[in-house]
């Protein structure tokens, strides 16, 4: 799951995650999407850029 807040500054970055993923998968440039979503600091930007969603992979091993 995407962390609720940015580790460094505490901004609520999880709000932007679903739209970010959809738009990047749709072929948009990640940097432009992040700026669009109001994530201007590099601490918040790396949160989304480097996130890997794992809950689906974990689910069969419950």
């Amino acid at each position: 799951m995407i962390p609720v807040r940015c580790f460094t500054c505490g901004k609520i970055i999880s709000l932007a995650w679903e739209e970010y993923r959809e738009r990047v998968e749709g072929g948009e440039d990640a940097g432009t999407v992040l700026t669009d979503l109001g994530l201007h600091r590099y601490c918040c930007r790396r949160m989304l850029l480097t996130h890997k969603e794992l809950v689906k992979d974990l689910n069969p091993y419950q």
Partner: peptide, 12 residues
């Protein structure tokens, strides 16, 4: 809560 769309977790 201030925001209604903060994902908490995914249920299968």
């Amino acid at each position: 809560p201030v925001h209604d769309r903060i994902p908490i977790l995914r249920l299968f």
